[in-house]
Design a binder for these strands. Structure first.
Length: 853
DNA sequence: AGCACGCCGACT
DNA sequence: GTCGGCGTGCTC
């Protein structure tokens, strides 16, 4: 059989099987080098040209874990995103199914003199203090001794991978081998663990008694048994044994009696874990669709019958009721056609509230896949989906790969959201893969957003997607009026100096908040930057503290009293004087949410304030706790980063204030304007949802910027038109497809030369060095070849905008244009054949990147 | 990724 | 003469 292994190698392997061939998509345990690994069977293998073929050790699945449709999708992703198939498959499945074999070590038991003692870490080479050890230990290397000591100091079995990490050593297999052959250690490869399944005892009706006469005859004078049986009947046939005993008082003998008559059976059943199980219930109010909703629904329902329905782009302003449209489509798929559907939602919008809207209609038929699930919980959901018990799957990015049967529709809500792009290999975009999965299944794909990505918008304008619009809010409320407050002139006039509160909360915004407090209404304040200040600068010498691993300034977090790097985990104590010149006069620059919180608390001492950003939501359910307080009216001002901009629906929020709309607008990324516009539009949509109306105030130093102007008038088409124009010269997505190749190394020279060599390699294939010479459009590739690579242009290499990250120096270059097929061939050749120069150099290929930092 | 093998400089 | 630190090529 041909087997895909989760290795960073663009190659598959062939193994021998005795007995029937396992079906494609089944997992197998195979010997690989000196370890055992889990891989996936792809089909019959070709033994031609392979020396010693090794045998499959075990077939781990009775039914393939990867059904044929998902295997085909994985193959497509593997090609398109230039990622080995095994790594792609691993990322589509619950991790328990692929985390593979575990190599364990333990101190050998059979050795005379007992276990080697805990070391007293004598100098290497010195005579051993404990004479009890066998002779063999005398000539161990110091490395081997370290390994042995480490194993001995942890009791029981020790896994190799964590041990190696703890020791900070490279490969420790030579040492392990030496120790095993010296009889000091035992080494064993354990099979993959059984997926964790908890069970409990459940009493379930085995034989139903419908006829009254039979019933009397059966039970006779066994009144308790009859009662118990009737309770079981009333509750659908199954009750947990412990509940029957403890809560209903049926003794073991009553249940035993029923068992003896063959009426019930006591069996172990799996306990399924589901943290969303107790989400708040939502009344199933049957809403009447607006005319716009009704016509969107009609189109979508009609599309379900098409052979190959075109993807639909549903553009509905915030509050226009896109979810109602989704639900109607799902009902059609699930109830009328017996199919299943997948609904993708951005991670932070995946709340019990969101889920409960689907639960209202589909009840237990809804599976939820969420990043906060434990491995076991995820696996539980996955099994139920595969068993066909959950026709509706709601989840974040990876829910797209739910093994549903009869896929009828895929919905991608907030399709413009950047969190749909995976940042590790396979670097897929779930929106794009959703279109592909739906197409492969002949299913309908619905992309929904108030502010579609320009990629989808262009597809809709060009007819590849069908555009559906919900131009009005479902309850007829108007979109809130938006006002701009120019903050350029503030500060000088402010009473407390240039850094004082007046610069942070303009008089206009202060008055507006004050009015809400007086009326008992709520305010949302957005500032898309966490921490207290994004950098700390010495007023004497100008020094700014940077992260030692990344080329970014350290952010001051006042709550923790520390400086943190927002890219890696680095942190250090906050300085009280400049580390360079010793001057104590430090200025805290670059406003963050912590500082706003402080200013707001000082300005409105009576207000109840909640802050929501990644620093206040570290716990698993912290989001829900904070939002619950807002919902119950225990919060007057909710302050936070972009995580408060999505999906919240609180009718008493009548003011949204954007503290500084310019954060992010100047990032060196062609999507900076698009992201700002989306964020402003989204947060604006948080108000005016109830009868109280609403208002939005945007503070900015760039009141004339088109992204802000468009947000003022809620004008998505206008914004899109302008932005599409901005991206024509030089050509950026969506006009061309783009690939970002990032080369990194701990050594800055190696990163630069690695990027140059990689670019040269590709340049030679596509017939050009770089793109600079050509101005204007990217068309007309006269000299540059007309083969499969025609039209592909290379730009760069250059240092990445964040040139150092996690201790690695980074260079990158772009490829753009050409045909998708040509690009795939180019990239595959590159991935398979390009050898980076020696040293620790990594090459990451990011196709259709969403962020270029 | 993780392993073996081979080369080379440093240390005993 | 050995040990340990890389670089290179291969894994069914």
């Amino acid at each position: 059989v041909e087997v895909a292994l989760p290795l960073p190698v663009h190659q598959t392997f062939t193994y021998r099987v005795d007995g029937p061939l396992p079906r494609a998509g089944s997992r197998v345990l195979v010997p690989f080098q000196r370890a055992e690994r889990v891989g996936w069977v792809l089909g019959p293998g070709d033994p031609e040209g392979i020396r010693g073929i090794r045998p499959v050790l075990d077939v781990l699945d009775r039914e393939p874990t990867v059904p044929p449709d998902l295997l085909a999708l994985a193959r497509w992703m593997s090609e398109y995103y230039v990622t080995p198939l095994g790594i792609t498959l691993r990322s589509l499945l619950p991790s328990v199914l692929s985390d593979g074999s575990r190599e364990v070590l333990r101190v050998a038991t059979g050795v005379g003199g007992g276990t080697p003692t805990r070391s007293r870490s004598g100098p290497a080479g010195s005579p051993r203090a404990d004479a009890s050890g066998p002779e063999a230990s005398a000539h161990l290397t110091s490395r081997a001794r370290k390994v042995l000591e480490a194993v001995a100091s942890r009791r029981g079995e020790v896994r190799v991978a964590p041990l190696r990490k703890a020791l900070g050593m490279g490969s420790i297999w030579p040492e392990i081998r030496a120790l095993t052959s010296a009889g000091l250690l035992e080494h064993e490869t354990l099979p993959p663990p059984d997926p964790p399944v908890r069970t409990r005892k459940v009493v379930r009706i085995e034989r139903w008694i419908l006829d009254l006469g039979t019933r009397e005859e059966t039970f006779g004078r066994a009144a308790r048994q009859q009662e118990c049986f009737e309770l079981l009947e009333a509750s659908g046939g199954g009750i947990e044994l412990a509940v029957l005993q403890d809560e209903h008082g049926f003794s073991r003998s009553v249940i035993g009696g029923l068992e003896g008559r063959g009426l019930v059976r006591v069996a172990d059943e799996e306990v399924l874990r589901d943290p969303f199980r107790d989400g708040p219930p939502e009344p199933a109010s049957e809403l009447t669709p607006t005319p716009a909703q009704a016509s969107a629904i009609a189109d979508l329902v009609g599309a379900l019958d098409e052979e190959r329905p075109a993807p639909r782009l549903l553009r509905g302003i915030t509050g226009s009721g896109k979810t109602l449209v989704y639900i109607e489509v799902l009902k059609e798929v699930v109830e009328k056609r017996g199919g299943s559907a997948i609904v993708l939602v951005p991670e932070i919008a995946l709340t019990p509230q969101t889920v409960s809207r689907f639960r209202t209609w589909f009840g237990e038929g809804v599976a939820v896949l969420h990043s906060a699930l434990s491995q076991g919980e995820r696996y539980d959901q996955w099994r139920q989906i595969r068993a066909g018990e959950k026709p509706v799957v709601v989840g974040a990015r990876s829910a797209l790969f739910a093994p549903v049967r009869e896929l009828g529709a895929v919905v991608v809500d907030e399709e413009h959201d950047g969190s749909y792009k995976q940042s590790e290999a396979p670097r897929y975009h779930a929106r794009d893969v959703a279109v592909v999965r739906a197409r492969m299944a002949g299913a309908l794909c619905v992309l929904g957003s108030a502010t579609p990505s320009l990629e989808s918008w262009r597809n809709a304008l060009g007819g590849r997607f069908r555009l559906l619009t919900l131009p009005e809010r479902a309850k007829g409320q108007p979109l809130p009026p938006v006002r701009v407050v120019d903050i350029r002139t503030r500060g000088k006039k402010g009473t407390t100096g240039p850094e004082g509160p007046a610069r942070i909360l303009s008089p206009e915004l202060t008055d507006a908040v004050q009015a809400r407090l007086r009326r008992g209404e709520q305010t949302i304040l957005l500032l898309n930057r966490r921490g207290y200040s994004s950098f700390v600068q010495c007023r004497a010498c100008g020094e700014v503290q940077e992260c030692p691993h990344c080329s970014v300034s350290l952010t001051f977090h006042r709550g923790r009293g520390r400086l943190l790097c927002h890219h890696c985990r680095y942190e250090q104590g906050a300085p009280d004087r400049c580390p360079a010149c010793g001057d104590p006069d430090l200025s805290f620059r670059g406003l963050g949410t912590e500082q706003v919180e402080r200013v707001v608390a000082e300005t409105f001492p009576r207000a109840r304030i909640a802050r929501m950003d990644v620093d206040t939501t570290s716990g698993k359910w912290a989001h829900h706790e904070i939002l619950g307080r807002v919902e119950r009216g225990e919060v007057d001002i909710l302050l936070g980063t972009q995580m408060i901009a999505k999906g919240l629906d609180f009718p008493r929020v009548t003011l949204v204030g954007v503290v500084n709309a310019d954060v992010g607008l100047h990032l060196p990324d062609f999507r900076a304007s698009e992201r700002s516009f989306q964020l402003l539009s989204q947060v604006a949509g948080r108000t005016g949802r109830g009868e109280l109306g609403g208002e939005v105030l945007i503070q900015t130093a760039l009141p004339g910027h088109y992204a802000i102007q468009a947000a003022l008038s809620h004008d998505f088409p206008g914004f899109a038109e302008r932005e599409l124009m901005e991206r024509t010269a030089p050509a950026y997505p969506p006009h061309v497809r783009m690939v970002n190749v990032v080369v990194s190394s701990p050594d800055p020279e190696a990163a630069a030369s690695g990027a140059e060599e990689a670019a040269r390699w590709i340049g030679a294939l596509i017939g050009e060095g770089a793109d600079e010479g050509r101005k204007g459009s990217g068309s007309g590739p006269e000299g540059s070849g007309r083969g499969p690579f025609a039209g592909i242009r290379l730009v760069g290499p250059a240092p990445c905008p964040i040139e150092r990250l996690h201790g690695r120096w980074r260079w990158h270059f772009f490829l753009r244009g050409g045909t998708p097929g040509g690009m795939t061939r180019l990239l595959r050749g590159f991935a398979q054949e390009f050898q980076p120069p020696a040293g620790d150099i990594r090459v990451a290929v990011d196709r259709d990147p969403v962020a270029l930092l």
